[in-house]
Amino acid sequence: MRTLGYRCLWFFLALAILVPLYAYFQSNLWSQRAEAREYLEAGYVVPSQFSRILACGYKGLLSDYQFLRILTFYGSRFAEQQQMVDEDWDYFVASIDVITDLDPYFIDPYVLTEGLLTWDAGRIEDANRLLLKGAVANENNWRLWYYLGFNSFYFMKDYVGGAEYLMIASRVPGSPDYLKTLSSRLAFYGGKTKTALLFLKGMLADTDDALLEKRLKTRLLALEGAVLIEEALVQFRDQQGHLPGSLNELVSSGYLHELPVEPYGGDWLFNKDARVFSTSKFTHR
């Protein structure tokens, strides 16, 4: 009994010292890790030829894991308000490539690609290459064809190519009806901002990704503003025979109630063809 009592005493004494020490080191370690991750370098992606082998039959799992990593990577950059630099985007593209090689039917990476690689990185060609890979693998997913069409139209100004992708999308069973009208409209009035507006509305109706939705809404707001101004400009030109000197003239002469807000914080501009732009180029800076 006596020895047991001593043992208990020693045990609790040890705990009383070790537990607070452990708590100290544990919290220190984790905060150090958090700090270290801010400077997280764009990682090194094992090419898919090797990672397929390394996965040892768990290709899906590995692709999930790599996807999680890239999400975290982007998320931490976003949270720290750090710009994604070129190397970061290289890493992004390489990761998505490996992920979709490991599991080509995994749709999320394509959605992420559409959401980030086009708007943020401006790497339309990379995006379309990845999306095409996905669209071919998932022929019955109209969304990927739709993304392709959208990118061709919106970023690459390739109206014919865009219309073709949209036609494929519209033929997929279960795709929304407006795709048909959109594709024919695209073929004729490719350059019109209003076409883009329709496109965006379609995209927005279909997205359930919160981050992408927020971006699309901003973009939609901007385009709606642009369309409103464009229509006023055309009306002005039709009635007055020339374009106004400045946009404020539109308001002062009553063609516009007021200038719409530019959600990206830039200033509205227009050219001789009555197309409206913004100094922000519709991106956050």
């Binding site: 894991y65 999680l68 982007y74 998320g75 976003f78 949270a79 981050l211």
Partner: peptide, 13 residues
């Protein structure tokens, strides 16, 4: 990876 992912604002959404 998981812990820090969950701390990002994206994860919250």
């Amino acid at each position: 990876e998981v812990v820090f992912y969950l701390r990002t604002p994206t994860a919250n959404e």
